[in-house]
């Protein structure tokens, strides 16, 4: 049986891992290479390496760091942040990533998903979606896709965008709840469940993990395939083995 994956996420800015709260960086959380080594040794199922500044000037440094991290890892590595062209995806894969995570650029140019999947295979194309709960004056509730690090509303329905992204060739979805990010109040389970029921590809829960119960909920109630978390791991609130032990105690298959 496929195990439930636990994925630490390194949000990197100017060569350091930073902690994000509701999508803005506020605190230093350590050295990316040191953390990569630690998570590999602790039994993380995968690692995400995310360039949150995503500035053009920072790209060289980012790829260099990515390459150094990749050397420490014998688990899958997904990298993203500001990737906008097929050439960006190629450079990221060449630097040692197994998958690329695309977000804002895919909203602006949806063909990036198709082109990336055709060139590198769907398994290399992870569509990352930043979604904010939105309530209309008439009471209608929906999740709205945001871009540019969660700062800009697009008017696009996140569930419809997830379905379209998969049709275009995305091999995995990461659902980042802007409401929950960094709050440690739990994943957005409604969003996870809604999207999981509509797509065939794995769905990764992101944003909001704060207690061990939040991880089990993402699988049991959100039907996620994997859970991603950042600050709770970096600051040692939980270790990866602790989370996996908790999942196993709740009858979920994990790799220990």
């Amino acid at each position: 049986m496929l195990t439930k994956r636990v994925i630490p996420c390194l949000d990197v800015a100017r060569g350091r891992v930073v902690r994000g709260v509701k999508f803005s960086a506020d605190k230093d959380a350590g050295d990316p290479i040191e953390l990569a080594r630690r998570y590999n040794a602790e039994g993380a199922d995968e690692l995400v390496f995310y360039d949150i500044t995503a500035s053009h000037e920072g790209r060289g440094l980012f790829l260099d760091l990515l390459e150094q991290c990749a050397r420490e890892l014998f688990i899958p590595l997904c990298a993203g942040g500001g990737l906008a062209t097929v050439d960006d995806l190629h450079a990221t894969l060449r630097s040692g990533a197994d998958k690329t995570s695309i977000n804002s650029a895919a909203v602006r140019t949806p063909d990036l998903i198709n082109d990336g999947a055709r060139r590198f295979g769907s398994q290399c194309i992870v569509l990352s979606i930043d979604a904010l709960r939105t309530v209309e004056p008439d009471g209608r509730r929906w999740w709205q896709v945001h871009v540019n690090g969660g700062r800009k509303a697009t008017g696009i329905d996140a569930v419809a965008w997830a379905v379209e992204g998969v049709q275009r060739g995305a091999g995995e979805l990461v659902l980042n709840s802007i409401d929950a990010d960094g709050t440690r109040e739990g994943y957005d389970l409604d969003l996870l469940r809604t999207v999981s029921s509509r797509v065939e590809v794995p769905v990764v829960a992101s944003g909001g993990a704060g207690t061990l119960a939040h991880f089990t909920e993402a699988f049991d109630l959100g039907n996620a395939h994997a859970v991603l978390a950042a600050s709770v791991f970096h600051y040692g609130v939980f270790s990866v083995p602790q989370v996996k032990g908790h999942l196993r105690a709740h009858g979920l298959p994990v790799r220990l």
């Binding site: 049986m1 496929l2 195990t3 994956r5 398994q123 995995e172 065939e200 590809v201 794995p202 395939h225």
Partner: peptide, 13 residues
């Protein structure tokens, strides 16, 4: 077969 999550992506025994 359809009905499974595809790709088979992750850790398995």
């Amino acid at each position: 077969s359809p009905g499974l999550s595809i790709p088979h992506m992750g850790w398995n025994r």
